[in-house]
Design a protein around this nucleic acid. Structure first.
Lengths: 180, 180
DNA sequence: CCTAAGTAAGTATCTATTTACTTATAGGCT
DNA sequence: AGCCTATAAGTAAATAGATACTTACTTAGG
């Protein structure tokens, strides 16, 4: 294990790719920058990931898997879960950003790793009411957790003395009321 | 007013730009395609809008203004308003898409036209509770209205027999409960 | 006939991808 | 053990195609 460590290089490239694509998206992301940031080489990227889209998809999957690990589905306490999702998005904004970008630029990419969350749907089913189905409930909770990240900046600026604490509380309270 | 109509050409370019940027984003959007789709010319785009970012910002502002006109703020009945917002996003997905893209690629662009919505904050103030402030409430409502457009595709696929009608009802119901 | 709308054909730069090359390292052979 | 070599890791430089933006020109119409 000297300077030649395939796994380590691969991991560095993946990490740099997440940063780059989260910041600039797929078509805005630059292979050269990723190679430089990873202290590696353009050629290695193609050796490991085939092409740009392969790299993007790998970075995306990696990010989703990481999220699924850090914020495991918790159907028994959905208000608590929205709080944890909120925290995660504050802690790791790159994950949400690359997901949003994937949604816009490559909507068909990496729907796979989502299986973890899908498994939760059934458990939620019982909490769902006739007015709001299980999947719709999850979709809404997911949206509430990231609401402040997709809200127009101009709107947020209106909140002169806002803190992430009060926002988090608002998200939890909203989901609590939805379930009431 | 023959074939030479500056206003009409400008409008065609703007419309084509909205379509293009909504589909591919700022850095993915192609000036040549916009010129072709507008049945105009690359040179005209630069004559009217200066450069690519000028064109993007113009298309974005135009879209936001159109939204503000079609779905006017209605603080007195927020559940009804979320329903109308939901309908608007179904009717004109380009507007939401270009807004999301602006959020990611050019977060500082075009916060101006949002003033219309900001004016509503005060009216909402009274409906806000200590747990959820006025701005946060608007942010959440805004997020719920577009929830199905930012939800991972894989999650939506789980909803085998979903319709926009039931989704709309879910959004309205969710906001109703939040306000209860 | 003069101004502004419109057109066509560049140009310089950028960027994904490849080709041709160098160096480290694991493992078989003596 | 110590050499030798096949293979995988790493590098540098070229290429081919896009793409934002310009320059030089043409034509409509008041």
């Amino acid at each position: 294990m000297g300077q030649r460590d395939a796994e380590a290089t691969r991991a560095r490239i993946l990490s740099a790719a997440l940063t780059e694509f989260a910041a600039h998206g797929y078509s805005g992301g630059r292979i050269d920058r990723i190679a430089r940031d990873a202290a590696s080489n353009v050629r290695m990227i193609y050796a490991y990931f085939g092409n740009k889209s392969g790299l993007f998809d790998a970075a995306l999957s990696d990010a989703i898997v990481r999220m699924a690990e850090e914020v495991p589905p918790e159907p028994s306490d959905l208000p608590a879960w929205v709080g944890e999702l909120f925290d995660f998005h504050e802690r790791r904004p790159e994950v949400l950003r690359i997901c949003l970008w994937a949604q816009l630029e490559r909507p068909d990419a990496a729907s796979e790793p989502l299986g973890t969350y899908l498994a939760k749907v059934e458990s939620v089913q019982q909490q769902a009411s006739p007015a709001i189905g299980a999947v719709d409930l999850l979709v809404i909770i997911y949206a509430v957790a990231q609401a402040w990240h997709v809200a127009p900046v101009g709107l947020l600026a209106a909140d002169t003395h806002a803190s992430s604490t009060t926002r988090r509380a608002a998200a939890v309270e909203a989901v609590t009321r939805i379930l009431a």
